[in-house]
Simulated assay, not measured.
Amino acid sequence: MTAKLSYQYVVLRCVPRVEREEFLNVGVVLYCHATDFLDVAWQVDRERLQAFDPRIDVDQVCDALDFVKAVCTGDPRVGAAATKPVSQRFGFLKAPKSTVIQPGPVHGGLTSDPPRQLERLLHQLVG
């Protein structure tokens, strides 16, 4: 039997117009302390986002999600965040923000395969 590992995740939401409080799920960040795993999976549906706000810069949304990926991988181009331990990088990513990309509440679960669980969550929560 494969050991189950606890993990935490947040759903990343695109909030084109913050004042309207409408959002579309665009990604998932998953953190597993036991394996030092931190990664993001994302998928942007341009047509759905533009239905929320035709003026949204979808490329800018994708750039913001690429930044999240860089924080997850510790890419030095993201500055000081890259030098922090994985747990602190997850803390940075799950913190509430008043930007177009916002994390939802932290959820948890058990898995024997964090990367596979991340893909499952992306399929279930983002589409």
Rank of each mutant, 00 (worst) to 15 (best):
L12H: 05
V26I: 09
F52I: 06
V58G: 03
P114D: 07
T73Y: 07
L122N: 00
W42F: 12
V71H: 01
R17I: 09
V11Q: 03
E47H: 10
Q102P: 09
P76C: 04
K4W: 11
S112I: 10
V68S: 00
V29Y: 01
M1R: 13
R20Y: 13
L93D: 01
P85R: 01
P115L: 08
L38P: 02
L93P: 03
V126H: 02
G79Q: 09
P103D: 03
F37L: 07
V61Y: 01
S6R: 08
R89Y: 08
K4S: 12
F90E: 04
F92G: 05
V106Q: 05
K69Q: 12
Q60G: 15
N25V: 05
K69N: 12
Y9H: 11
K84T: 12
P85L: 00
A3G: 14
S112G: 14
I56E: 03
E47Q: 10
P103I: 07
Q8D: 11
V126Q: 02
G27M: 06
Y9T: 15
A70N: 04
A80S: 13
L65C: 03
F23A: 13
A34T: 12
C14T: 03
Q88A: 12
L49R: 00
Q102F: 04
Q60F: 12
R20T: 15
F67T: 13
K97C: 13
G109E: 03
V58I: 11
R116F: 15
D39C: 11
V126M: 01
Q88P: 15
P105G: 15
T35H: 06
V100F: 05
V44Q: 00
V78R: 05
D113H: 09
F90I: 09
R116K: 11
G127Y: 03
P103R: 01
Y9L: 09
R46S: 13
T111V: 04
L122Q: 00
Y31L: 06
F90N: 04
R116I: 12
Q102K: 08
A51K: 11
V44I: 06
V11I: 14
R46G: 11
H33I: 13
V58Y: 02
L121H: 08
N25A: 06
D59H: 05
A82Y: 08
G109A: 03
V44D: 01
V18E: 15
T35Y: 08
R48N: 08
L12S: 05
